[in-house]
Nucleic acid binder design. Structure first.
Lengths: 255, 255
DNA sequence: TCGTGAAATTGATCCGTGTCAACGGCTCGG
DNA sequence: CCGAGCCGTTGACACGGATCAATTTCACGA
């Protein structure tokens, strides 16, 4: 099996094919609900079957070991996000880490099964979800390629605000599910430097931080500090319009 | 139409459905052969139909404008690579740039057409190709997240060696299709700094450079200078084993 | 053959981030 | 209530890459 729980074996319940996907009356895919506690890990290996994970709840972090003991966060997963194991290169210690308590749904997509007409809707839905994921991935790459560290933090805060927060007038606030060190790793920055950047943003009045709660008094001002804000907002809007992408996280989970 | 030629309108010939994909007797996908001259550009916009490009020949570069006039290379495409427009976020001046003369094949993949049984083999092939592309993309992200610039260049040279060169005993040599500025952009480095790094690598005896020709006297020595070498080699080996992934570039093009 | 312009290299300098250390605040358990 | 330990912050300093400018190399055309 490609995915298994290494530390604190997750509470895994096989809720066989009870989840109703949008635009689908009968889903023949085997799916498994996986519940993760904070800091719990899922090991990924890049071979074998194609497992697709849907994040129903919580936030995760894809980490890998790059150079000796050095570990790096390559990707963040938010509710509604999708993740396929085939898209991941084989690297040492490649694993998903739950930043908060998480509900995942795991689909096993085997090429031979997929020829059935009944599974087309779910596959079509996955295509859309993957397109979104790939586009966001590319935006993150564009972000960390940015030499100015302030821009990277601006991009990250806009991303977090879009996926974790809700607009409230001109302001917006959200709970960061990640530790500073994880954020720093995601932004290819030193934790100390990241802390300084946070301080700088606070001094500029762009954000107010209480523990892990981030409050953005003026969303548009923050967006002006993020070079990729326009592209990310556009992408989030596309996702909101896509049918069944977000809704599935609410309806498909068995009680 | 999502893809069009902006500068020096490409010589586009509609070779309707003559290309035979591996494991496929009849391909109903509309496909178009696109021939690009060096430095020619293809504009990409993230909406509309899903166009999939297969690089039959040559090398390309995906560029976008990130911040004002700043442009950045987000991705390199080598022969056998695949590229879908839906995977790209909407950003200003997002375009493919031909580094050399290129042959592309463009498939238009519409979700409704895709339900036909006859098109399953080609879709399955695309799945494999996309998985490879995504994995390589992630490796590149891991590479540019590396704070040490030498590592980035090492990773790049290994990638280029794997996809552009062939082993010749312990050595390996290849022609870099990209200008220094483009490589620097891809590695999120200053061109001046990149030049210094090349000099350092030459002094260490890792490479010999004649114009754009790179000769690696000892491949394993170069790999030791690349933190991601193992993962990239593993990935390239997987691709070589995948059926019809590389072969298609040779057989599918009409004479 | 020479001249021109673009690309690449190299040098000098500045600034920003990494590094290491110390400090402060918060949580949890005794 | 106190103490331990972790996380986050801040300061001092060094180093590496960015920047700007000057020079060399190469390709191409007259």
């Amino acid at each position: 099996m490609m995915i298994n729980c290494r530390i604190n074996m997750a509470q895994v319940r096989n809720e066989c094919a009870t989840a109703a996907m949008p635009h689908t009356e009968a889903v023949k895919f085997a799916n498994v609900r996986i519940v993760l506690q904070p800091e719990q890990r899922l090991a990924i290996t890049g071979t074998g079957d194609n497992h697709v994970f849907l994040v129903a709840n919580g936030a995760l972090l894809l980490e890998a070991q790059v150079h000796g003991e050095q570990r790096r966060a390559l990707e963040l997963l938010f509710p509604g996000d999708i993740f396929a194991t085939v898209d991941v290169p084989r690297m040492p210690a490649m694993l998903l880490i739950a930043a908060t308590a998480c509900d995942l749904i795991r689909y096993t997509v085997s090429p031979v099964d997929a020829s059935s007409q009944a599974e087309w809707p779910i596959l079509a839905w996955m295509q859309t979800a993957f397109a979104h994921r790939n586009a966001r991935r590319m935006l993150h790459y564009a972000s960390i390629a940015e030499p100015v560290a302030e821009h990277r933090l601006g991009d990250f805060l806009v991303e977090a605000g879009l996926y974790l927060g809700h607009p409230n007038g001109a302001s917006r606030s959200f709970e960061l599910p990640f530790a500073r060190e994880q954020i720093a790793s995601y932004l290819a920055l030193n934790p100390d430097t990241l802390s300084r950047l946070f301080t700088r943003f606070k001094q500029r009045g762009l954000i107010a931080v209480a523990r892990r709660r981030v409050t953005v008094p003026c969303w548009t001002a923050l967006c002006q500090a993020s070079p990729l804000a326009d592209a990310m907002i556009d992408l989030a809007a596309q996702r909101a319009k896509a049918p069944g992408l977000l809704q599935v996280t609410e309806h498909s989970l068995p009680a």
